[in-house]
Design a protein around this nucleic acid. Structure first.
Length: 426
RNA sequence: GUGGCCGUAGCUCAGGUGGUUAGAGCGUCAGGUUGUGGCCCUGAAGGCCGGGGGUUCGAGUCCCCUCGGUCACCCCA
């Protein structure tokens, strides 16, 4: 006996099917609309890049060093599936040199080889924006406000905006050195896993969850003290702008993000709806050195990414952004066979209506059941009687009223009927 | 990558201490109404009990391995 195949979606991936996928369509439409109104255009770039594109941006990060899906293609090129959305856009900017400020948005899968759990997948999806070519703090404010507007448009309310400022790459390096020296002297008091980070990534120790470490950190040197005057002014202007828009932000000097390229403004929208482990809904920041690292001229940039699965999970937790798919306008029931249903359904659709029908010559009762389940407002019945008389029976599913309409007038009649306020009786 | 918990029809689940043909609700299909949905009634289909190995006269129930999910760590969206 041959083994029966038993294929499943790969570990850490999932199929999104109707009706759940209706929420994806809606979410994407919300994001696309907001991006357009903010002056951002869509960018579509490859799902994989030369692995160097990603290695350049995160030499010390887990996302790049441990979690990448990389492989050699048949031509011997070492490529990687994108683990995040910013680097490919930055690479495209360097390649094409569009005029600045270049404001773009994307919706993309992202791949990371990690241990999956709810809200953390090996293939997840993000919507995001990037704005390249301006260091104006007002742009930071615009990007953050766009993130806020998006979450609110989904109906989310129970989230908070957390901010930090890293300063210039030089500020950041200086602070990392100071912090590292300070932590070295106290490595015995830190949690063991945190102590191991001191040499490689001292900044990572900052957002530790371990109580021992947090106690030590209480009087560690602050990042804010390491910033130069211009960096301080940038941060202040961002905070003023957010305030002018009525956006409450909480400054957290221990906020550190997983990609190493951030400078100046760093931000996250967090929700505790999913528990601590997956609290970040949307995160981003400025990356003023990134374009240069990818071979372009020194060019500032800022952006964010938002995880779609996580956003939807958070919507569930808050009981918002439900998945009511738009109902059908008309369902065609056919008991006579022949071309009547084929042609009528086409005509309804051509007239701009959402129309569907039953197949497989099912009984009228079964077809009516399907019509009811479809949520259609009206049913158009074509049977022997109608075909003989050159008419169609049009039934209003909510009221149960029905009548004969001349075949030539059906689409007009149904359109007019749909324009009437919906019956609520019976 | 490490550790805990879980894995029975499409879905949600029930199946004391191992014992004959593995059950329910919902969903699906058909009939009750030979051209009329929702409610109701009747019936049917649908299970390598995640997979493999072992213990046993006998395993959905016990043991081992494995795959998947989930939670925590880690990391992050």
């Amino acid at each position: 006996m041959p083994e029966r195949p038993d294929f499943r979606a790969p570990k850490g991936t999932q199929d999104v099917l109707p009706p759940e996928s209706g929420r994806w369509e809606a979410l994407l439409a919300v994001f696309a609309g907001l991006a357009r109104r903010h002056g951002y255009g869509l960018v579509q770039s490859p799902m994989f890049e030369d692995i160097g594109v990603f290695q350049r941006i995160g030499e010390g990060t887990d996302v790049v060093t441990k979690e990448m899906y990389d492989f050699e293609d048949k031509g011997g090129r070492h490529v990687a599936l994108r683990p995040e959305g910013t680097a490919p856009v930055a690479r495209a900017y360097v390649e094409h040199r569009p005029t600045t400020p270049w404001k773009v948005w994307y919706a993309t899968p992202a791949f990371r080889y990690e241990q999956p759990q709810a809200g953390r997948l090996r293939q997840h999806h993000q919507v995001g924006v990037e704005a390249i070519g301006s260091s104006d703090p007002d742009l930071d404010v615009e990007v953050i406000a766009l993130g806020d507007a998006f979450l609110r448009a989904l109906g989310l309310r129970r989230f908070r905006l957390v901010l930090n400022f890293m300063g210039t790459p030089a500020d950041r390096a200086r602070y990392a050195g100071v912090l590292q020296a300070w932590l070295r002297d106290r490595s015995g008091q830190l949690d063991r896993t945190d102590a191991e980070k001191v040499e490689g990534h001292p900044l990572r120790v900052l957002d530790s969850k371990h109580a021992e470490t947090r106690a030590v950190l209480a009087d560690a040197p602050r990042m804010g003290d390491a910033l130069d005057d211009a960096s301080v002014a940038h941060g202040r202007r961002v905070q003023e702008g957010l305030e002018a828009l009525g956006l409450a932000a909480e400054l957290d000097p221990t906020l550190v993000r997983g990609l190493d390229y951030y400078t100046h403004t760093l931000f996250e929208f967090q929700s505790d709806a999913l528990g601590n482990a997956q609290s970040t809904l949307l995160g981003g920041g400025r990356y003023d050195g990134l374009i240069e690292q990818l071979g372009g001229p020194s060019t500032p940039g800022i952006g964010f990414g938002c995880g779609i699965e996580r956003a939807l999970l958070t919507c569930d937790a808050e009981g918002v952004f439900g998945g009511d798919s738009p109902p059908l306008d008309c369902f065609v029931v056919d008991t006579a066979g022949g071309d009547a249903a084929v042609v009528l359904t086409r005509d309804l659709r051509a007239a701009g209506l959402a129309a569907d029908r039953a197949f497989d010559s099912r009984s009228m009762k079964a077809q009516m059941k399907a019509a009811g389940k479809s949520g259609a407002r009206v049913v158009a019945i074509v049977g022997h009687d109608e075909q003989a008389a050159g008419t169609v029976t049009v039934r209003d599913l909510a009221s149960g009223e029905q009548g004969q309409v001349a075949r030539a007038d059906v689409t007009q009649h149904i359109k007019a009927k749909l324009a009437e306020p919906q019956e609520t009786t019976t």
